[in-house]
Amino acid sequence: MSARPRGVVLVTALLSAVLMLAGCSAVPSAVPEAPGGDGNWTPVTVSTAFGEVTIPQRPRRVVTLGWGDAEVALALGVQPVGSADWLGIGGDGLGQWVQRRYEPRPPPMLGTLDVNMERLAGLAPDLILDTRSSGDLDRHEQLSGLGVPVIGIPEGAQQYTTSWQQQLDLIGTALGERPQAQRLRTDLEAKFARSAREHPEFSGATAVVGARTVRGYGAYVDGTSRVEFMRALGFRNSPPVQELATTAFSVPISQERLDLLDADLTLMTTIGVDPQALIRDPLYRTVPSVREGRDVVFTDEVVSSAFASATVVGIPYALDHLVPRLAEALSR
């Protein structure tokens, strides 16, 4: 037998204390009850990187901790009782692209990399969704210490590389909403196919999906949501960038090698940096594709965040706003 995971004893004690303080009820009265169903439920088993997780009863108090998990749960008609604001939007943590909102009020925000375990325990969840996260075993074991099903990253995934399809499948299965999840998937796949069909010039064109952060430049590699977005439109990731790929989701690019940003089309996002600072950067402007106008820089924060959300909810919004700009840049 292995030693008990770090944090399990503490979390279990916290949960016990919360239930004692709640008296006879296991659900704190200050937290709204998540909507249930008709009571007809067949136990489901979900395969994750941490093994199979069985959900014996219909979840009624769902906490969404993974990147974009809340958006997907809401799209499937489930109101989370606790969540996390990965994109730093503030307020309820939901971007403008999210049509289904929290009702009657936003749930507590529990943190992203560091989860407020005491507050999480106080919500008395019966299901925790953490489908797009670091995939760290310590994190998973700490969450599992609450004694409720935890749906972590899928088999074969690495940190934050859960695809929108995998996320939708995991959450749809866990919530008993697979038919609706399949409809959402079909709609988005059709939207990608329509965009690709309307822009045959995308097919086979090379693209670099890069980022400018406070630390410098970088570019994303195959298997990440940003690159897969472009691949679904017909683009292929820049071979020189892909040759540098490791197990990380991006590769660093030094100022001396900004030529690696060159491709048929260069798509750039900024993290912690003003987009205009990137656009005016003399070194960036020497990149051939940039010099020739075949680059797109995210200057609209909402579109950028929708693209970064990489969910079945955010991607359609990003497609609507981004595809025309990609076509215009590629035509130069």
Score class of each variant (00 low, 15 high):
Arg6Glu: 12
Val11Arg: 05
Cys24Lys: 14
Val31Cys: 08
Gly36Pro: 11
Gly39Tyr: 03
Gly39His: 06
Gly39Pro: 10
Thr45Ser: 14
Phe50Trp: 07
Thr54Glu: 08
Pro56Asn: 07
Gln57Gly: 02
Arg60Gln: 12
Val63Leu: 05
Glu71Asp: 13
Glu71Gln: 09
Glu71Gly: 00
Val78Pro: 11
Gln79Cys: 08
Val81Arg: 02
Ile89Asn: 09
Ile89Met: 09
Gln96Asn: 12
Val98Lys: 04
Leu113Ser: 14
Gly135Pro: 02
Gly135Phe: 00
His140Phe: 15
Leu143Gln: 03
Leu143His: 02
Gly147Tyr: 09
Gly147Asp: 09
Pro149Glu: 03
Gly152Phe: 00
Pro154Arg: 11
Thr173Asn: 05
Ala174Phe: 00
Glu177Pro: 02
Arg183Lys: 13
Leu184Ser: 01
Arg185Glu: 04
Thr186His: 08
Thr186Lys: 11
Ala190Trp: 10
Ala190Ser: 14
Arg194Lys: 14
Ala196Asp: 14
Glu198Ala: 15
His199Asn: 14
Arg212Tyr: 09
Ala219Asp: 05
Ala219Leu: 04
Thr224Ala: 04
Phe229Val: 03
Phe229Tyr: 11
Ser238Ile: 00
Thr247Ala: 13
Ala248Asn: 05
Val251Tyr: 01
Pro252Ser: 04
Ser254Lys: 04
Leu265His: 02
Thr266Ala: 00
Thr270Lys: 02
Pro275Asn: 08
Gln276Gly: 05
Gln276Ala: 11
Arg280Ala: 14
Arg280His: 15
Pro282Val: 06
Arg285His: 07
Thr286Ile: 06
Thr286Gly: 08
Pro288Met: 10
Pro288Ser: 05
Val296Gln: 01
Thr299Gln: 13
Ser304His: 13
Ser305Pro: 04
Ala306Ser: 13
Gly314Tyr: 02
Pro316Gln: 09
Pro324Leu: 04
Arg325Asp: 10
Ser331Cys: 04
